[in-house]
């Protein structure tokens, strides 16, 4: 009963907020609706018993990705009239993407229902004596270790690529060297002299 209420609550909010992402007039509001959608998707994951995925969804998407979105959207000075004007121009492309996505979803669900994966395996209860972090960990670090490492390497290459592409060497910048600063002692920088009258100090 509680699960049923929770499922319909989360599902409704996911769909409604996903729609609001598109319909909101203010881009910052759009990002906020997107965050709400992520959140409720995480709720659905919890109901499916995948608490690890749910938490990762919140940490990665809400905690990091959406913050970056929000950053970009806030920094840009967006002209709303101009955004509206592009609507008709991008409509065919948008519709194409939407149709492809919908077709893929229907195809995937159809393939699932048509069998191929044995029904008994699909409906088999999950091993409950282990938390799903442990199950995922055991699979990722044994059976799928090479795929896992490959994914890591792809991410590393992407990161280095992003740095290489955006990095530019700026000449003539005086960089602060903190260790040199903290190493410096009064003896290195000052000198005590006792000049006689009328003699002055050698600098």
């Amino acid at each position: 009963m509680i699960q049923l209420i929770a499922f319909y609550l989360f599902a409704t909010i996911v769909i409604a907020s996903a729609a609001m992402v598109i319909f909101a007039r203010n881009p910052v509001h759009s990002v906020m609706w997107l965050i709400l959608a992520f959140f409720n998707a995480a709720g659905l994951m919890l109901l499916a018993g995948a608490e690890f995925i749910a938490m990762l969804l919140v940490i990665v998407y809400v905690g990091a990705v959406a913050v970056l979105f929000l950053f970009v959207v806030m920094m840009l000075n967006i002209d709303f009239a101009e955004l509206r004007a592009g609507f008709v121009r991008y409509l065919p492309l948008g519709a194409l993407v939407a149709i492809i996505l919908a077709a893929e979803l229907i195809f995937a669900v159809g393939a699932w229902n048509a069998g191929g994966v044995d029904l008994a395996v699909r409906a088999a209860p999950v091993v409950t004596d282990k938390s799903n972090i442990e199950q995922l960990g055991e699979l990722l670090y044994t059976k799928y270790i090479f795929l896992f490492e490959a994914a890591g390497i792809v991410l590393l290459v992407a990161m280095i690529g992003a740095i290489v592409l955006t990095h530019r060497e700026r000449g003539g910048v005086r960089v602060q060297n903190v260790s040199a600063q903290t190493r410096r002692r009064p003896g290195d920088a000052t000198r005590l002299v006792d000049p006689g009258s009328g003699q002055g100090v050698e600098l």
Binding site: I35, E51, F52, M55, L56, V58, I59, V62, G63, A64, V67, L70, F71, M74, S131, I133
Partner: peptide, 19 residues
């Protein structure tokens, strides 16, 4: 059983109030 991850998730939300 994901208590610590939950805390990490919730504390990563804290930034939204400020931003």
């Amino acid at each position: 059983n994901v208590g610590l991850l939950y805390i990490l998730a919730v504390s990563s939300l804290g930034v939204y109030g400020v931003v």
